[in-house]
């Protein structure tokens, strides 16, 4: 499954239904922007939603609702929602990421920088951008929770193979991995991170007070 480098069908269905957590939805939306062919699955999800809608037992609206709405048709539409990028956003990122201000880049280790995508949160789960220099690895780590990653530019390789722009990876507590950047340019990724990244071993314990991902 993970070899297909796209979100699982059940995750895409949850995205279509609107039930993914905000951080997960942001990473899936980034993948959908870079890999429009995956939209066939979310379109199927919308079609299923439509079919379920058709089959629902209708629930009558309040009396006069129809007339009230018809009377509102000629009223001017509400102003279009402000679509200007917020201060601190980066217009060079894929569209879904342009809606959020970004925190400052922070050093995480040799050649590894991280910054927060501010806004989408779900408990401990949040969105980060990770920038890793060519040839560098993130420290070998396991995950406190599920981690969803989508490559924006550059490429990295893990035990599972190479991940290129648009590729999507899911890792959970059972996965220990050490992505190494294999592109000539730095690798930029967006990730939804649930819980802390746990760096195993003595170096990990040593770094823990300093490295809060």
């Amino acid at each position: 499954m993970s070899l297909r480098r796209q979100p699982s069908e059940e995750r895409l269905l949850a995205y279509a239904a609107g039930t993914l957590s905000p951080p997960e939805a942001v990473v899936v939306a980034t993948h959908l922007t870079l890999r429009p062919e995956t939209r066939a699955w979310t379109a199927l999800g919308h079609a299923i939603g439509g079919a379920l809608l058709e089959d629902l037992e209708p629930l009558a609206l309040d009396g006069g609702a129809s007339e009230a709405v018809l009377a509102r048709l000629d009223a001017s539409a509400p102003p279009v929602v402000e679509t200007a990028a917020p201060k601190g956003a980066d217009a060079s990122l894929p569209a879904p990421l342009r809606h959020f201000p970004l925190g400052p880049w922070r050093w995480l280790g040799p050649g590894v920088h991280v910054r927060d995508v501010l806004g989408p949160r779900d408990g401990d789960c949040r969105v980060i951008l990770l920038r890793i220099a060519p040839g560098q690895c993130t420290p070998r780590h396991t995950h406190g929770g599920v981690e969803l990653t989508c490559v924006i530019s550059g490429a990295y390789a893990t035990e599972d193979g190479v991940f290129s722009p648009g590729d999507f990876e899911e890792a959970d507590a059972n996965v220990t991995h050490q992505p190494r950047v294999v592109s000539a340019e730095p690798c930029l990724c967006v990730a939804a991170l649930d819980g802390q990244i746990v760096l195993p071993g003595r170096l990990g314990r040593l770094l823990r007070p300093f490295v809060r991902l």
Binding site: P23, A25, G50, L53, G119, P120
Partner: peptide, 25 residues
Amino acid sequence: AAAWIFTIARNLRIDSLRRADRAVY
């Protein structure tokens, strides 16, 4: 029509919950 209306309803619901990802949807 059904799929489209479903999607609009989904977006308005996410909007009403003021979820941070509503712009993404």
